[in-house]
Each structure stands twice: as C-alpha cells, then as structure tokens.
Write a protein that binds this DNA or RNA. Sequence first.
DNA 1: CTGAAAGCGCTAACAG
DNA 2: CTGTTAGCGCTTTCAG
Lengths: 335, 335
Amino acid sequence: MAPATIKDLARELKLSPSTVSRALRDHPDISPKTKKRVVSLANKLDYHPDSIAQSLQTKKTKTIGVIVPEIKQPFFASVINGIEELAYAAGYTIIVCQSNETADREVLVTRSLGSHRVAGLLVSLSRSTENLDHFKVLQRRGVPIVFFDRVSNDIEASKVVVDDYKGAFDVVEHLIKSGYKRIAHLAGPKNLSISKFRLKGYTDALQQGNLPLDDSMVVYGGLDDTDGIVGFQKLLHLKTLPDAIFAVNDPVATGAFVMIKEHGMKIPDDIAIAGFSNTYMTSLLEPPLTTVEQPSYEIGKTAAQLLMEQINSNYENFIPKFIVLKTHLIVRSST
Amino acid sequence: MAPATIKDLARELKLSPSTVSRALRDHPDISPKTKKRVVSLANKLDYHPDSIAQSLQTKKTKTIGVIVPEIKQPFFASVINGIEELAYAAGYTIIVCQSNETADREVLVTRSLGSHRVAGLLVSLSRSTENLDHFKVLQRRGVPIVFFDRVSNDIEASKVVVDDYKGAFDVVEHLIKSGYKRIAHLAGPKNLSISKFRLKGYTDALQQGNLPLDDSMVVYGGLDDTDGIVGFQKLLHLKTLPDAIFAVNDPVATGAFVMIKEHGMKIPDDIAIAGFSNTYMTSLLEPPLTTVEQPSYEIGKTAAQLLMEQINSNYENFIPKFIVLKTHLIVRSST
DNA sequence: CTGAAAGCGCTAACAG
DNA sequence: CTGTTAGCGCTTTCAG
C-alpha cells in the first residue's frame, strides 16, 4: 500500500494541495477549522511527509553526515552517541560512514554524502588523509563541516579537539614524578594531529623533568592493539629496556600490556605502562591501566552543537571556532 | 557555488537533459562520442547526480536503515561493520539509528526511516519492544525488513540469529563436566528472544547433567555490566553460594567478574564464571573469561545479504528465511 | 483564508 | 541515436 500523499488528503477533503501543505505545517494563514480537519485525516491515514520530496524542494535535508575512521573503536562509538543525542533533539537524522582509515574511502563517502545533500558534515580524519580537497568542494557549496579529534591545519573550519598536548604532558610528568627514568613512547601515525600533540607533550615533559631525549625510545606505529604488540617488540631490541611506556592510545597500550605480561615482566615493577582515552576496558585490566580521560561523549555533543549553529546561521561571514576540551589524568596501578 | 546539474551539462554541450542523463548512465542508445563528451565535462565540472532527485523520480533510494539498541555495544558495532561492507559493495549507504533500548524511540526512528523512503530495514529489537506494528506499517508499503539477533515471533520476516540455545547449552555443559554443581544464571530481560533461548539452554543442560533446577539460582536483569554487579549481589544473599555463574552476555559477566574479585573471591577456584559473545575485552581479563563466540560480523553480512536479495526480488510471493548461525565455545581459565 | 501554477533535478515513455 | 514531454511529492509565489 503506497503511503498517503498530500494530494490524497487534498482530494479527500476537497481542498487544494497547497492548503493541506500549509495546514500541516501550521501556517498562520489557515483557519483553525481547516487545520483540524487536515491534521485529523493525516493521522487517520498515517500520513508522513516524504522527506525526499521536501528536500528536493527546499534544497535542504535534515540529515547530517558523520565520517569516522571506524565505528568499532569505542572512542568513536561514544562520540557518535553524543552527536546523535544532539542531532536527534534538533530533528536531524545522522548518516554514519566509516573511512576505514583510508583516504580513498574517505573521498568516496564524502562524495556520497554530498550527493545526499546533507545539511552538514562531522568529520574525524582517516589516518592516511593528506589532501583535503574533497571537503573543500563541499564547503564551496555551502555545506558546513566541523572536524573533531583528528583535525588538520590545511582547512578552514570549526574544530573540536581535546588537549592532547596537556594530556600527554600530564601523564608523562606523572611517570617522571613516580621515579621512572627511561620512558618510551609508542607513537601514532606521524601525520595525525593527535599523534603530533601527544608526542610533543611527551618530549616537553621529559625536558622539563631533565630527562634526556632519546630517539630510539620513540617507536611509531598505528593505533590498534597489534601496533602495541609490534611496538613493544621493537623496544625489546634496545640495549637498555625502558622502565615505563606511554602509548598513544588505549588499544596500543593494551597490546603492549599483553606482551609485557607474556614476556613474564611485572607491571609496574619491571615496566610501567600508560595509555590515552580511558576506554572502559582499561579499568578491567590487571593491574588497571593509568590513562588519560577524553570526554568522548562531550566531543560529539560539542561538534554537533557547532555544526547546528553553523547550519542555522547565514554563513556569509562565518568565523570558525576552535574548541579544546580538557583531559583528565587517571592514575591506576599500572604506573 | 551550487553543484552542477544535468541541465548545466546539457546547455553547455547543446544536448537535451535526457541525452545527458542517459549518457551518464551508459545507456546503449547513446553514441560513444556523445558519451565521452558528456562524461568528460561531468568530470570537469565535478558533477555528481543529486540522489535526492533520483530517489524522488524512481521511488527508490539507495539507503538502508539500520536500527540497533546501542552502537556502543561492541557486538552491534561489529554487526554494523558487516552490514556496511556488504551494503557499500552494492552501492548502498546505511543510516544507523539507535533505539536506546526503548520501544518509544524505536517507533520514532522507524517512522523517520520510513519517511526517508529507505530501500529496506535491518533491525535488532530494543529490549522493551512488545508491539511490532510500526514495522508492519512499513512492510505493507513494500519495505523489506530483516531482523537479526533480537527477533520476535510476532512478525513475518526474514531473521538472522545465532544458536543461542546451543551456545548456552554448550557452556553450561562444559561447566557441569568441569565439576561445578551449583551453577547460577544471570539472565537477561524476560521478553527478549536471546534471553529466553539462553535460559532454556541453561536449564536443559542442567537437566541433562542431572543437576537440580533451582529458581533462586536464576536472577533476571538487563544486559549491561551494572546488571552483572546487581545480579551478583543478589546471588550473595543465597544461603549456599553458587560455585559457577553463566551470564547472559559478556558485559553482565564482566560486571559480576569485578564484583567477585572485589569480594576477595578467587576465579575460578571460589567461583567460576562464563559469558556470551566473545567481545575483545574478555580475553584481557585476569583470568581470561570463558565465553561463547558469536560471529557478529557474519550476522551483519548475512542479514544485509538477505535484505539485498529481498530488495532485488519482486516481493510478491516472498518466503521469509530464518538463518541460524553457529556459535563456538571458547574455554579460558575463568572456568 | 484558499487555490492555481510553477518548479526543485531527475528519469522514462514516446516520438522522431 | 537524440529530443520532447510529463511527472515523482512537495513548497512557494502570486492571485483571488
């Protein structure tokens, strides 16, 4: 059974489609009596406006696109929850896409979202993204974009991040104060903003703590637990082992964590370890992991908030905002 | 800058819009020469078809709606990945919505998806859903729906589940064979299909193992770690404590796990514990958790596959399929 | 207060 | 092989 249309209502009520349309949207021109008749029939026939047709007409949709590297990363799942809460309250639907950490796929989904005429875009960059032209095309069309967590300087747009620098600095400072002297860093992909800031926080904390910088103590890798495993194995080749490790994020920390134990070393006595994000599972490890809390849900809400504002503004002379949310050191017994 | 339309291309090439439209879609009627001209200009102007307009015309969209209770549950995140892979390969976009485990919200997002004229729906029921009319409305409109994991008998549709009964039976049988005599069950919400089957697997395994059924050993709750915490506390009130616990899923098992340790009991010596799903974190617990592997990614792919078939069929005399995927017992040292 | 007419961007007969 | 025409369901002038 085909869904009821405005025409159906009009025919049945002996009104014109335009009148029905106005009545449905509570236009002041329409008499209360007519409105009641229209609304009551609409309910009876279970009428719902065809948002496709609406969009074609108004050139606007009530959907916003979200691009994340991977849904399965708990951090992003939580960000999406934040986005959804706000978007939903504003009557928007979200389309979630994954770049699977590849630039190619990111370009494709961005285009697809553009073709869907999304009202705006919320993006966390894939780890292999270098070129941002695919986003600029949409911006030129007037599609607002807000970046979060993984951002780039090569594009003018509002951005929401956490203070990765300070988060990293705090955790390394904590390690130093706890007496660790040889602190290694399992770093993330070199081109990611989060990797850079966390690395900088690490080096600055070492310097302030008067500890020597040692390039061999920094191992670059990806962001998954397997990268933690590989990274730790590289550290094992050093002449002198580190006495503490700061990993770029929790999954990497977890991978290293497992390897440390497999090598029969005690945490934190033989080697201490800390992560970044405070994903749920870190609290369940034995010993529980020291980490840095990132307000993931807040990031989502804030980014969505900014996007909504931009959508509802006449974006002539729009000034991008750069919002930095606070992190919070969580000390547990792994350090 | 407004995006280029078919009209723009037509004007520039001195062709009619229909010719351009056909050329773009590689229609056999069009001469190779014309096609080339059209395609090359399209690339130059960065033309992409307006999928909104396409949908309005064809009454079809290339989007499929996905409704899950919560994205943040790793099981569902993984299912979504499976769905996405298949949908994406078939040129479909997915709109992911959460019911947040409430029936009200489920009704709202279902309607919204209907209004978006999705080509089909993939659904895992919220835990408070009793009435399925909101889905039946869409089915009557010809929108195919495939249910997965959390399904209901009250609706005729294809369904994809795992063998919850056997999974539960296997794990409880394993507990019995390992010598445990007083096996408790932290059960899920009573009205969920998965709860019922896992409970039945539990009771049947006890019977086959000649162990007495004891209602006080079955504690009903939700599906989160907090439910595991609460559930375990209820078990503590028993005169004789259980020597093993089978939890309806991993989060519940984890909650109980933490409480057991907090009470100073040893796993598995004082009390053994097993979960269901094989989420990643279960392998990291100390001791690692015995659980039942659910092929979450496969569930997503299979459900999407069924949906695609149904979308591409003339659903006159469509016969719903019921697919049961195998589970796999994973024995670790918590039992 | 209501209606008629046009058009959003695209596709699909039907002609030529 | 290409063009003309009509229309998807809705909103929006412009008239009454």
